[in-house]
């Protein structure tokens, strides 16, 4: 420790009592200046170093976005792999891994009320993840002080490092779990999870909230499309999957709300619930073809 602190009498004598404040302040100004320049020129990755950072980054970018956004996909990690943003500049994927559609819907509502501009089309993923509720932390980080320069994920040193490293060399082989035969374990795990219904009261509470959001946006003239992201086909009729579907349909029946129906067996899921890249691209393509072209 003594290498880092001043404990020599000689040094103390030679410096006035508060010189360290001045020296630190000057050093800080220089370091901050250099760092500021780095943040301006460094590459900026689309994701952050971890799920949490990726979610906040996504939310902050959406909150700061100045271009008009017409098409938005909200949901959980299952929807986050569906890159509709690749199709047009006014499309945004606002799905949060480990989160759910409700957080995305609240963000859209807040931004739309602030700007007075509403998206034309919102895809809402309906899933059991909705019982996570709204992520207040993400909302906090997209409002006021949470969105200030010092609180933005893009300005964090770890994000800069991550983006730089990613731009130089990055090899994150997509979902290699099946190579190790782990997919069977995952499928077994999810079969087990989805064999038991979740608390019906919780499900009702959050489904009602989803309905309120859907009604709100429809009232504002938005086209709201509800969708179930494809799982492994074997999970289609398990108790929890059925419970989510039936509860959602009881609140938002198919004759009043638009549902996007698709055959799950057409898509390959890499770990039982998340689509592989090719399938996710095909799914995004299908959405765009159906509703935009």
């Amino acid at each position: 420790m003594h290498s880092y602190t001043s404990n020599t009498k000689k040094e103390n004598k030679s410096e006035k009592k508060y010189t360290f404040v001045l020296k630190t302040a000057v050093s800080f100004a220089i370091i901050f200046g250099i760092y500021f320049l780095i943040t301006c020129i460094a590459p900026k990755s689309d994701d952050g170093p971890g799920l949490y950072f990726t979610n906040v980054l996504k939310a902050q970018r959406f909150a700061m976005r100045t271009e008009k956004t017409n098409v938005i996909l909200v949901g959980s990690s299952m929807a986050s792999v569906v890159h509709i943003e690749d199709y047009a500049n006014d499309c945004v994927n606002l799905a949060f891994s480990g989160g759910d559609a409700l957080t995305g819907l609240e963000l859209i509502k807040q931004k739309s009320e602030k700007t007075g501009s509403y998206p034309e089309l919102i895809f809402v993923e309906i899933s059991d993840a909705m019982i996570n509720g709204i992520d207040e932390d993400i909302l906090k980080k997209t409002n006021g002080f949470g969105l200030s320069w010092i609180n933005r994920i893009e300005n964090r040193p770890d994000y800069i490092f991550y983006s730089l490293a990613k731009s130089v060399y990055y090899h994150n082989k997509e979902k290699t779990l099946s190579d190790y035969g782990v997919i069977e374990e995952k499928l077994e795990y999810w079969t087990n999870v989805k064999s038991y219904p979740v608390n019906q009261n919780d499900m009702n509470e959050y489904m009602e909230l989803a309905k309120e959001y859907a009604d709100y946006f429809m009232e504002k003239g938005c086209h709201v499309v509800l969708l179930e992201m494809p799982y492994d086909a074997s999970l289609h009729d398990l108790p929890e999957t059925v419970q989510v579907r039936e509860t959602a349909l009881s609140y938002m029946p198919a004759d009043e709300y638009e549902w996007f129906i698709t055959d799950w067996s057409e898509y390959i899921v890499s770990d039982a619930i998340h689509m592989g890249k090719l399938s996710a691209d095909r799914y995004a393509n299908r959405l765009i073809e159906t509703y935009l072209q």
Binding site: Y4, S6, K23, T24, V26, S27, F28, I30, I31
Partner: peptide, 8 residues
């Protein structure tokens, strides 16, 4: 003075 750089 190196330590001031670290502190900053």
């Amino acid at each position: 003075n190196w330590k001031y750089v670290f502190y900053a």
